[in-house]
Design a protein around this nucleic acid. Structure first.
Length: 583
RNA sequence: GGUCCUGUGGUGCAGUUUGGAGUGCACACCGCCCUGUCAAGGCGGAGGCCGCGGGUUCAAAUCCCGUCAGGACCGCCA
């Protein structure tokens, strides 16, 4: 038997038991005579004591970190004054009767203790198998496993059917850039890897599965970020004879179950906010509502002002508490940032004692206007006021970004604060040809109150049409989104025609789905969210790389395996692929 | 595609602003001492292409140009 116990399970009630334990040497404290080892396995740390009267082999003084050893010995309570309150096993130790070296180890290239948290990430990824031994990675992957299990259990309890959908599918030109896989049987032709199971889950609804879910791997060939990887896991669901409220209830139950299994507290209730309100108050469709600094409309405060920059579609501001002491170079940096985000400029104002304003533009504003600005923002002496004027949507975007730059707390601070964002616009913008561009995807059902607008709208008015699309946001991260789908061929035809997709093109892109819908598609709606992001939030990590066993760097490389790499000439020949010579 | 930040013994940093001998700190590593430590302690030692290439200069870790790698952000992510 390799071991009788995992080290982290031993407690004072085991005193007197003879145990066999095995693991890695986390540290050695060598007194020349007695030697202490911290023995680590997946369950934790345990102090092992090697007494020279028990074990006389001098090699014990040369056992290094990360050596793999096995100890047979007796559990005993620690002597008075030597209990370690920082360790769950700190009340006991094992006195070694025998010590076996199961494997030697070279010194690791970086510390595996909690001190290793600051190590260069490339080095960690290159030796991920060592990085995984560290506390935080062990913890994060175990959180991930329990979240996956909780989601599955919840969906099964809610009578959903888990169905796997294919990884090798047809490419459609919609959405994100596809990863593609060459076909050996049909040289010159390619499969695409799924960006999401979207079309398949709608086919499953036509197929009468009624309630589908999957924890699905999705792939998108777009630039990576702290919370975006090429490949990621989506909790994906779709339900028939159901609408927005039904979907939100099911998702809330599942997410709540996952949160509860980690934090011990369910998400009792997830408040709802319209997209329009989120944009006006927070300048974001994924508002972080854990802190204030809300966007305030200053249109009334500066109505009729002489200051020409404030003669704009919208004049809005935020108040940054206590940052009136920001240096000129910091303020210049904020102005640059605002301009980079597309603002014409940024007005900053330091709020001085008695509420007077110190600002390059103060001389253009009357005392009444200055007082109105301070009043509207509720600014106090010592605060910093930032004002942007311009087109309303751009103004909201810029201030929303500055608000996050200046006020956003660490992702784990204050627990999880979830929010449903509803009534997204159906179209996010107008293309160069004046055709509206869908905000979600072209199968999204318009909002019932805005159906009439579909026929009467023109130009920018299209952007006011709402849809039955909804997002789940937690702590300012877009966790996922969903929508009620169009199931009526007539409505689908109208949307395609608004999007400038003619029948031939629609057939070519989504013909199989449209064909399926001719045979009696049930009304259906669904949702999907990023499991990596949920796990990162629950683990308190800013980057999903910390909750993925083998992630890629920002340039899409894997320092451990060397992916991506080049193929043999013979392999390429078989696939009918020619690649340019290496530069 | 763009902007910004970072790159110095195995690891984490300081040094770069204002050029002057690879100068410093902590950890790890090796040797010796040490029988109750908790990241043990003490003494000693070894370990450097200052990411890479070019330029300026009497002299470059330091200034300039280029490049590579990593990260954050913009674009992108229906």
């Amino acid at each position: 038997m390799m071991r009788t116990h995992e080290v982290g399970t031993l407690r004072p009630e085991h005193a007197g038991h003879e145990v066999t334990v095995a693991g890695w040497v986390a540290s050695r404290r060598d007194h020349g005579g007695v030697v202490f080892f911290d023995l680590r396995d997946a369950s934790g740390l345990l102090q092992v004591v090697v007494d020279p009267e028990q074990i006389t082999d001098d090699d014990v003084h040369h056992i290094g970190r990360e050596w793999v050893i096995q100890i047979v010995g007796e559990v005993r309570p620690r002597r008075e004054g030597t209990v370690n309150a920082d360790l769950p096993t700190g009340g006991v130790e094992v006195g070694a009767r025998s010590l076996t070296v199961l494997n030697r180890a070279e010194p690791p290239p970086f510390p595996l203790s909690d001190r290793g948290d600051d190590v260069d990430e490339v080095l960690r990824l290159k030796h991920r198998y060592l990085d995984l031994r560290r506390n935080s990675m062990q913890r994060n992957l175990r959180i991930r496993s329990r979240v996956n299990a909780a989601l599955r259990t919840s969906m099964n309890e809610q009578d959903f059917v888990e169905v796997e959908t294919p990884m090798l599918i047809a490419s459609t030109p919609e959405g994100a850039r596809d990863f593609v896989v060459p076909s050996r049987f049909s040289p010159g032709e390619f499969y695409a890897l799924p960006q999401s199971p979207q079309l398949f889950k709608q086919l499953l609804m036509v197929g009468g599965l009624d309630r589908y879910f999957q924890i699905a791997r999705c792939l998108r060939d777009e630039d990576l970020r702290g919370n975006r990887q090429f490949e990621f896991m989506q909790y994906d669901m779709e339900m028939s004879f159901a609408g927005q409220a039904d979907v939100m209830a099911v998702v809330t139950t599942a997410v709540s179950a996952a949160v509860e299994v980690i934090t011990g507290e369910p998400l009792a209730f997830i408040p709802t906010m319209t997209w329009a309100e989120a944009m006006e108050r927070f300048g974001s469709d994924k508002p972080d509502v854990r802190f204030g600094m809300e966007l305030t409309d200053l249109g009334d405060a500066v109505a009729g002002t002489e200051f020409k920059a404030f003669h704009a579609d919208a004049v809005k501001g935020i108040c940054v508490p206590g940052r009136g002491d920001a240096s000129r170079s910091v303020l210049d940096g904020l102005v640059d940032r605002a301009k980079a985000l597309g603002a014409a400029g940024l007005v900053w104002m330091r709020v001085m004692a008695e509420g007077s304003l110190e600002s390059p533009v103060a001389k253009f504003l009357t005392a009444e206007e200055q007082a109105a600005i301070v009043g509207a923002l509720g600014a106090a002496p010592g605060d910093l006021v930032l004002i942007v004027a311009g087109a309303r949507r751009r103004t909201n975007d810029v201030l929303g970004a500055l608000r996050l730059d200046l006020g956003r707390p660490p992702v784990a601070e204050g627990g999880l604060v979830p929010l449903w964002i509803v009534d997204f616009p159906l179209f996010e913008a107008l293309g160069d040809d004046g055709q509206p561009i869908p905000a979600h995807h072209p199968f999204t059902q318009p909002h019932p109150e805005d159906l009439a607008l579909l026929d009467t709208a023109s130009g920018e008015e299209f952007l006011d049409i709402r849809s039955q699309a909804y997002d789940l946001v937690i702590n300012g991260w877009e966790l996922g989104s969903g929508s009620v789908r169009i199931h009526d061929p007539g409505m689908q035809q109208r949307i395609f025609s608004l999007l400038g997709i003619d029948e031939t093109e629609a057939q070519a892109r989504f013909g199989f789905l449209l064909d399926a819908f001719r045979y009696g598609a049930p009304p259906h709606a669904g949702f999907a969210f990023g499991v990596d992001r949920l796990v990162a939030l629950l683990a308190g990590e800013e980057s999903i790389r910390e909750v993925i066993a083998f992630p890629k760097t920002q340039s899409g490389a894997d320092p451990l395996t060397g992916a991506p790499n080049r193929l043999d000439a013979s392999q390429l020949r078989e696939l009918g692929i020619t690649v340019p010579p290496r530069k």
